[in-house]
Design a protein around this nucleic acid. Structure first.
Lengths: 195, 195
DNA sequence: CGTCTATTTGAATGTACTCAAAAGCGGTGG
DNA sequence: CCACCGCTTTTGAGTACATTCAAATAGACG
């Protein structure tokens, strides 16, 4: 159970972590399980945790005034997910985080996050780098969203996240890519003809 | 010259900073000036600094294989800009950062960034929160890019960044919004008719 | 099996794009 | 001072891509 998180920390920090320090970090996290469709974070409610996914998958989305759901992020084993704005500001969340499958997570609450930052030397840096990597990836994604057409975006997405294609319903991927499910269906049909 | 940076730090950390610590932080930054059209950061070259803009404005962009420029970020007085990926990884930059007007900046190099993080207690947290805020804003922006049409995106941009509308050429704003300059021109014409 | 949800397909519509050209604007040099 | 040049913005006409509306399949789950 702990090894996925340890791997994640090693990968982000790009160096080994002290075993004892890792244990104290782990001790601050709560194991939680959610059923499919359960909400790990809910729009309008302060989001109390950031989640590390040990098994299963989730996604976060924004609900438009017209009721349309706009997918923002997918997360599977080895990823972190939350409404960061809500978690850090302690204001109401604007996103929901929902389980796509039954999930096992390690959940870190704000108090323990603070304790970790204050008492374990690499934690502050770990979260800075984690968010920084996510930010850099997102900047690139928005540039591509702006400049490329839907079929190219889908192709890039499949290449970058082949695991997601397997496990995530098409209409959610469509939303993530900024298109309608019907359009994604047609794009897939086209790409089969060509391939 | 220092007051803008001090304000920025106060705003991000949401508390006052010790005067002495601030001075040591300032001492690690280099004042630099650039002419209009100068490159603060260049694609293909490791980006050595993160910049705090004291006066003037800049923008960052990606160059597509077909030569098209895709604007990623604008920055004016009080903002930070860089190619973060390049700065932190010390790999070649994928973006250029270019001066839109003559600019005065405070530039922080990697070595001094490290020193600051290691010796001044709030610096690690400052950059984490800075990037975190940028990340949160970007997530929201991409959700809106995906769900809203060009006219709504322009309207939201004008509301959120009225200063940018004044100072930034329209064809760059168009690129940032993911549309062509011709389309933005038409959108503006429409919005005047309605207003 | 029946129900509910997801995906596919078709036809008509709409938004933004391309190509092309004109008009506006700012700076430079004769 | 004005003529000219380069660059930005505007405008027009035709096109392409994605959307909407509608309906038919296909899958998943009890």
């Amino acid at each position: 159970m702990t090894s996925a998180l340890k791997e994640n920390i090693k990968k982000v920090l790009q160096h080994q972590v002290d075993e004892k320090q890792f244990s104290s970090f782990m001790a601050l996290m709560e194991e939680k399980n959610f059923e499919k469709k359960a909400l790990l974070c809910e729009e309008g409610v302060v989001c109390k945790y950031i989640y590390f996914i040990d098994k299963g998958s989730c996604y976060s989305y924004l609900t438009e005034p017209d009721g349309e759901k706009q997918v923002v992020q997918f997360a599977i084993e080895g990823n972190w997910i939350s409404d960061l704005f809500s978690f850090f500001s302690e204001k109401k969340a604007i996103y929901c985080v929902e389980a796509l499958e039954p999930v096992n997570v390690l959940a870190l609450n704000k108090k323990n996050f603070q304790i970790a930052c204050d008492t374990i030397p690499w934690v502050d840096r770990f979260f800075r780098v984690l968010i920084q990597n996510a930010y850099v990836a997102l900047q690139y994604r928005i540039a591509k969203t702006n400049s490329e057409e839907a079929d190219a975006r889908y192709k890039e997405f499949s290449k970058l996240h082949p695991q997601f294609i397997q496990r995530i319903p098409q209409y959610l991927i469509a939303s993530y890519l900024g298109i309608k499910p019907q359009s994604l269906s047609r794009i897939r049909k086209e790409s089969i003809h060509k391939a």
